[in-house]
Amino acid sequence: MSAVLVFVDRPATGLGKPTRELLTLARRAGEPVVALAGEASTDIVAALGSYGVSRVLNSAQPELSEYLVAPKADFIARAAELADARAVLIENSTEGKEIAARAGIALKAGVITDAIAVAADLTATKSVLAGSYTSTCRVRTPVAIISVKANSIEPAEAETPTEPAVEAVTVDFGPASLAVRIVDRQDKPVSTRPDLSEARIVVAGGRGVNGDFTPVEELADVLGAAVGASRAATDAGWIEHSAQIGQTGKTVSPQLYISAGISGAIQQKAGMQTSAVIVAVNKDAESPVFEIADFGVVGDLFKVLPQAAEEIRRRRNS
């Protein structure tokens, strides 16, 4: 069986859900091999073994975190050669897509981004044109590189765990790969709420919250949801830029998207219109968001959201 390489980037504690999804996909499509950047701790290697990983190609070279993107792509290209991989699977983050892009050039491999499903024969499904079409893509090259969005598959451990062999890989980085230095790194505060890209439910607020995200956060917390925002809200500085949903923010596709005080501009819709169920609360009945809402409330979010949160609490307690 040919190898399918999964890139795992410096896992801090355990394997994140997106990584476990990639490992599950890799096992269905071939023999799962991991390119692990960072320390190969016993815990991580055991966790990879529980997903049936046969080999771990490991590099902890400092360049991987001192320079932007390029060294990681070089490492993956080297690991893919060593493993003779027919495919490389990568998380679909901004950085993941760029790593895929460069590894594609290095391996002369076709790259498919934003996959929402990957079949065992490596055919990938993705949403295109801001969610207005679904397309099926294949690469024509011997190696396929696919960046896969979170929630593409339910992660499943292997029936029989493996004890992966860890092999150290030393990459010979060229000067062009060590050209963009990270001179300062500021960590952002870690939220206790679910990650936007992985969340089953998203509650998002826009200019209508008028500087006060409390009702949005309160409803999100009773639902165990992630908090999102329109660009108007992030531009105003009411919430972190990483909460922005839309064309130039995140694209989400949760089971439920609750939009509050957001008009539903085309760039906002681009990031959320593939959600399974859309609920909108807006005081203007003419807002375009109502065109895509399964359930809409013409009303004041400062009344409707707290009432809904209170009602959910009441039902749970009775």
């Binding site: 491999a109 079409y133 109502f290 013409v298």
Partner: peptide
């Protein structure tokens, strides 16, 4: 290096309930 094998428009969202 890639092919788009197939493309389907997303089904139009059915009109929802607005109250």
């Amino acid at each position: 290096w890639t092919d788009v094998v197939e493309a389907q428009p997303r089904p139009v969202r059915a009109a929802g309930t607005i109250i």
